[in-house]
Design a protein around this nucleic acid. Structure first.
Length: 392
DNA sequence: ATGTAC
């Protein structure tokens, strides 16, 4: 009887490539995303498209998919090469969201080796900066990127959580960001010459891609260190750090992941939203899933729809103070609406689909306390006011 | 998701 649960829906593919969708029939997936999966499956050299339960339409290619091919297609990774989610343990004395939100540093302001040589966050940089790319280091970016202080909520696999050094109530920093301008430049330089076509010299693309992947991982460590110092903690090694936009050579073909995390025996944080928990899972996805799992709740609405509907439904204050009691640092009203929890699918449904298809086992949830999206104008003006009054 | 142009 479990056989039924193991089977995933299959979309008719126009070419020889196969498509598997790992979502239960009750999980709503926008039809444009299915269309994009068929378009990808029809590309020259495609072997198999695995769609995750957080599948949604992207720019040209679906987001939430793992795609194998005999040719390397840079656009199937996208511009944010190396984007991923890392989890860093942190110890703080009294985690009061209101106080900590005001202490988050400006993560839109880059750290520059020459302009900020004394910033303590540099201690996490031990080797060379990948590609020698110093622009934008230590910045979080926009869109769905964030840095979040969270506490471990439900512990669903105590033994596994224990091996990671986690117990209920512990604090972590969750960092979701990528390679900023570097990955964007790498894709643009390919697209200017070859459009959506495959890389004529896969090795040359892969060399630059690998640098962007390393840059993304370094950026997540820098961000965690910046925030840890600002909140009165200390930098730590990540206990989880998986990249969900990348390509790897596997079994002689190219496995492209776009909004899909490596799922072959690794621990992954699957992001919820800025008002719901996220799930730390042990991923064990097989070949049908292209060894991948979902990377987050997945957008339910386009940014335009979320903005339009959010404005009618929510006040800014509702979105800055979430249903789980956390605070969202975001001085950009539009981004606040675009990233509202209601613009995303229910994370429990996404995790449920992964569990049903035996692709992942939940370890623990992380519950947001403070999520940083972009500099809060109110905080800046309060600081200025204090300075004017001479209270340092 | 991005830097940059409108």
């Amino acid at each position: 009887m479990s056989e039924l649960h193991l089977r995933q829906s299959t979309l008719p593919a126009s070419g020889p490539a196969t498509i598997s969708v790992f979502a239960s029939p009750t999980s709503w997936i926008e039809s444009d995303a299915h269309t994009q999966c068929r378009q990808v499956a029809a590309l020259d050299g495609m072997i198999h498209v695995a769609a995750m339960p957080d599948l949604h339409p992207g720019k040209g290619a679906p987001i939430g998919a793992a795609m194998t091919s005999r040719l390397l297609y840079p656009f199937l990774v996208g511009s944010d090469i190396g984007c991923g989610i890392a989890v860093f343990p942190i110890r703080l004395k009294r985690p009061v969201p209101e106080k900590l939100a005001a202490r988050f540093p400006d993560l839109d302001r880059p750290l520059h080796p020459e302009h900020d040589p004394d910033d303590p966050a540099w201690t996490v940089v031990t080797g060379e900066i990948p590609a020698g790319h110093v622009e934008g280091l230590g910045t979080v970016g926009r869109g769905n990127h964030f840095v979040e202080l969270a506490r471990i909520g439900a512990v669903l696999d105590p033994a596994h959580a224990g091996r990671l050094g986690l117990a209920a109530g512990d604090l972590v920093l969750v960092v979701h960001t990528g390679s900023r301008g570097l990955g964007e430049r790498i894709l643009r330089e390919h697209t200017e010459r070859h459009g959506a076509g495959p890389a004529p010299d896969p090795g040359a693309y892969l060399a630059r891609h690998d640098e962007a992947v390393r840059w993304g991982a370094l950026n997540r460590r820098l961000l965690a260190a910046r925030v840890a110092y600002a909140l009165g903690g200390a930098p730590t090694e990540p206990i989880v750090d998986q990249c969900h936009n990348l390509v790897e050579v596997r079994d002689g073909s190219y496995l492209h992941r776009k909004g899909a995390a490596p799922g072959d025996g690794r621990d992954v944080l699957i992001a919820g939203t800025r008002g719901t928990p996220s799930y730390l899972v042990a991923a064990h996805a097989g070949p049908e899933a292209n060894y991948s799992v979902a990377h987050g709740a997945g957008r339910k609405m386009s940014r335009a729809d979320a903005l339009r509907r959010g404005r009618a439904k929510h006040t800014v204050e509702e979105l800055r103070r979430t249903p789980v009691g956390s605070l969202v640092v975001c001085g950009d009203r539009q981004l606040l609406f675009e990233e509202a929890p209601g613009a995303y699918k229910r994370i429990e449904q996404v995790i449920g689909d992964l569990v049903e298809h035996r692709m992942a086992t939940p370890i623990a949830t992380t519950v947001p306390l403070v999520t940083y999206k972009t500099a809060d104008l109110a905080v800046g003006s309060r600081r200025d006011e204090r300075r004017r009054r001479g209270r340092r």
